[in-house]
Simulated assay, not measured.
Amino acid sequence: MASFEARTAAGEGRVTVVLSGDCDLTARDQLTHVLLDAVSREKAVFVDVAEVSFFDSTGVHALVTAHHAARGRNGRLFVVNAGGAVAAVLELTGLDALLRAPAEGHRHA
């Protein structure tokens, strides 16, 4: 069983949240907390999911919750580096289009 980790790095006018491991029910509280904290600090938040090995409805819910929080502050949440099964879940739910970064760092495998 893979563990979950979220690392945050602040940059000029943006926060990048790098996720790794399994975004599942066991990671729900930590994932939601990290994303909401990031959108409360900057108007642009980039969520890098390149190292995510599993992504279920818990991850979808956390992204949607953070997206709404960001929009409520006139900010944006973007997902970058989605590939494989993670990209498939984002595409299936429509989050790939909703949270696509403007011409940077987005790959779709």
Rank of each mutant, 00 (worst) to 15 (best):
L77H: 01
V60E: 05
A38R: 02
V80N: 00
D48G: 06
G83V: 09
F4G: 07
H106F: 08
N81T: 01
G13D: 10
G84P: 03
R41L: 11
T58N: 07
N81D: 14
A109K: 15
E104K: 05
A103P: 00
L98Y: 02
E51L: 10
V89P: 07
R28D: 06
A109W: 09
P102D: 08
L19P: 05
R76D: 11
Q30V: 15
V45I: 07
A70N: 04
P102Y: 06
V17C: 01
L19S: 11
A69H: 10
E51D: 14
D24N: 08
T8G: 01
R73H: 11
A88F: 06
V79C: 03
S20L: 00
S53W: 05
P102R: 06
C23A: 12
M1I: 13
R71Y: 13
V79Y: 04
A87K: 11
R100W: 00
R100F: 01
L25H: 12
R107H: 15
A62W: 14
R107I: 14
R71C: 15
R7W: 05
D37I: 03
S53Y: 03
L90Q: 01
G94P: 01
V34T: 15
G75Y: 13
Q30C: 12
G13N: 06
L98S: 10
A69Q: 08
A27T: 00
V39P: 06
D24V: 02
A2N: 10
T93L: 07
R7A: 12
V39W: 04
G94W: 07
C23D: 06
F55N: 00
L90R: 09
T65H: 05
A70F: 02
D37C: 06
V15T: 15
A85Q: 12
T93C: 10
A87M: 15
E51M: 04
R73W: 02
G13M: 04
V89N: 06
A9M: 08
S40H: 09
V49P: 04
A101L: 14
G83F: 09
P102G: 02
V86I: 11
A88K: 14
A103R: 14
L25K: 03
E5M: 08
L77C: 11
V45G: 13
L95M: 07
G59Q: 08
L99Q: 12
G21D: 04
V86S: 07
R7Y: 02
M1C: 06
R28E: 06
L36R: 09
R14K: 11
V34W: 05
L36D: 15
R7C: 07
A10G: 08
D96Y: 00
V79R: 08
L63D: 03
T16R: 07
F4M: 05
H68W: 05
G72K: 08
V34M: 13
A2F: 15
D24C: 13
G94D: 02
V49L: 01
H61K: 13
G13H: 04
R71W: 13
Q30S: 11
D24Y: 10
A9E: 09
E51Y: 06
V17Y: 05
E104G: 14
N81Q: 09
L92R: 09
F55M: 11
D24G: 10
A103W: 11
M1D: 13
L92V: 13
A82I: 01
K43F: 03
H67M: 10
T8W: 05
D29F: 07
L19K: 05
A9Y: 03
E5A: 11
F46R: 03
A109E: 06
